[in-house]
Design a protein around this nucleic acid. Structure first.
Length: 225
DNA sequence: AAATCCACCAACCGCAAAGGA
DNA sequence: CTCCTTTGCGGTTGGTGGATT
């Protein structure tokens, strides 16, 4: 208790302490923080030394305000990872987890309880739309691949049947609604189905974008975690 | 001019995982 | 395998300075 308080200094770091810590790290490198305290002649515990170095003294730190681009990344990654600040910080070179955590708390924590301001809403929607479109594209590709595989299989099967029975190959006929669409000059088959499902989905998603207007930005993140 | 509010930032604390003896 | 130390992470607190009332 009292012994520790006498031994370890607390509170804001002085310029001299910073100098000692920087000098020590430049000579011996990072790590072994507990011994840094004594070796560098500092009356700080290892934890305090590490924190000071990581959050303030490291030479590769980026100073200045968080840029709009960085903010977008933070929003995106927070939606994906939740409060995993160190994970988020790894995607923002020069920024510390502490910095990002502080930024989030001052800028977005409150807004998650109340409604988001318009620009943030817009950003969130854009991000989600982008993500959704990416997923759709992947699904399209998968479907196309599946259809391709089925078509290949059918071709092989009919070829086998043909060669077995020596029967003439009959191309598939266009029937029903497909026929109507074909005659109307509309696209048909897989691409049409995809297009209609896409437009329907967008209608649905336009509604979903608004979920955040009600629940705030943490809604999905909280569900994810 | 004084009081209050708010945003920002640095630092501390507790906990858990990792690593070594 | 267990215990102990070190390290890293996330939550929280406290100080400061500018803006607002």
């Amino acid at each position: 208790m009292g012994g520790n308080e006498e031994r370890w200094r607390k509170g804001p770091w002085t310029a001299e302490e910073d100098r000692l810590l920087m000098h020590h790290v430049s000579l011996h490198g990072e790590g072994r923080w507990n011994s840094v305290a004594t070796l560098a002649g500092l009356r700080r515990n290892g934890k305090s030394c590490r924190l000071r170095w990581v959050n303030y003294l490291r030479p590769d730190l980026k100073r200045g305000r968080i840029t709009p681009h960085e903010e977008t990344i933070i929003l995106d990654l927070h939606a994906r990872w939740g409060n995993r600040w160190s994970t988020i910080a790894r995607s923002l070179p020069g920024r510390t987890d502490n910095e990002i955590k502080n930024y989030w708390r001052t800028h977005f924590k409150k807004k998650s309880k109340v409604a988001l301001d318009e620009s943030a809403k817009l950003k969130m929607r854009q991000l989600k739309r982008q993500k959704f479109q990416q997923e759709q594209r992947q699904q399209q590709l998968q479907q196309l691949q599946m259809q391709q595989n089925i078509a290949d299989m059918k071709r092989i099967m009919s070829f086998l049947e043909e060669s077995e029975n020596q029967v003439e190959y009959m191309p598939p006929t266009v029937v029903g609604k497909q026929k109507d669409r074909a005659s109307n000059g509309c696209c048909y088959g897989s691409s049409y189905a995809l297009e209609t499902s896409m437009s329907e989905d967008f209608g649905m998603w336009d509604g979903l974008w608004n979920l955040d207007d009600v629940h705030g930005p943490n809604f999905h993140a909280a569900k994810a975690s």
